[in-house]
Simulated assay, not measured.
Amino acid sequence: MKSQHKILIIDDEPHIRRLIQTALTRADYETIEAATARAGMEKLREERPDITLLDLGLPDRDGLELVPLIKAQSDTTLIIVSAREATEQKVTALDLGADDYLTKPFDTDELLARIRVVLRNRMSKDGGTARIQAQDVEIDLLARTVLKGGKEVHLTPKEYAVLAQLAKFPDRVITHTQIMAQVWPNEVEHHVEYLRVLVRTLRQKLETDPQQPKVITNELGIGYRLRSHESDSAGIGI
């Protein structure tokens, strides 16, 4: 199952982008690349990445100038990956809003470890959790795995994206609009029927009785809730 964590790489050196992209792909992250500040900001708006890896030595604009712009325009977690190793450069970047700073040359294992740390911190900051148990279904948001009765359930990327949005905040109602904005961010018009179809297929895969759902329940006219504890009564279908 492919990760739903999307990472934007902004770096003007092709071999560095290739190195990072290869490491991230092997770890099942989705990657987007940009070689300039302008292209990076465009990708940031279009792709809404979970994490942005930013080089400071860009050809069209100093990377430090981008830090406050990125943080103001996005909720992306920002990691600086730069050859600038002076302490004042690191402090400035962090003071401007960067979440972490990694100096080139770097070990890709260290980069992956930093990414795992910021993802955990991101979930904690959002009030979410990394592993959720709902009935006999176990969802691990860091490992991107879904188990039912101890056996892995294979989901499509869209199915997993919907489930992950619910699992980040178990027992809370997540509205149709909130889910669709995350799963279909580039759609001009959001049709709730897309979501209903996906929820039906998820229930077929996750529920003991899809007609009496207890894992994903419906809040009529509002959205869906992932129940992390068994309810006294069955859920409401679509």
Score class of each variant (00 low, 15 high):
Val173Tyr: 00
Gly221Lys: 00
Thr92Lys: 12
Leu195Gln: 03
Val215Lys: 07
His229Ser: 11
Gly237Leu: 14
Leu8Val: 06
Leu111Gln: 10
Arg114Gly: 06
Thr177Met: 11
Ser228Gln: 09
Val162Gly: 04
Val188Trp: 10
Tyr101Met: 09
Leu24Gln: 01
Gln178Met: 13
Tyr29Asn: 06
Arg200Gln: 12
Leu44Trp: 04
Val199Gly: 04
Lys158Tyr: 05
Glu110Ile: 15
Ala164Val: 03
Gln182Ala: 15
Thr22Ile: 13
Glu85Ile: 12
Ser233Gln: 13
Gln133Tyr: 04
Ala72Arg: 12
Glu230Phe: 05
Phe169Ile: 12
Arg18Asp: 12
Val137Ala: 08
Ala34Asp: 00
Thr103Leu: 04
Val215Trp: 00
Arg84Pro: 08
His190Gln: 14
Thr25Ser: 13
Gly221Trp: 00
Ile20Ala: 04
His154Met: 15
Thr25Phe: 03
Ile222Asp: 00
Val81Trp: 02
Leu64Arg: 02
Asp28Ala: 14
Ile7Gly: 06
Leu78Gln: 06
Leu19Met: 03
Ala181Glu: 15
Glu88Ser: 12
Gly223Val: 01
Thr77Tyr: 10
Leu69Gln: 14
Leu155Lys: 05
Ala234Lys: 08
Met1Cys: 07
Ala93Ile: 03
Ala130Asp: 06
Thr145Ser: 10
Gln21Cys: 14
Thr201Lys: 14
Gln73Phe: 11
Thr103Ala: 11
Arg200Met: 11
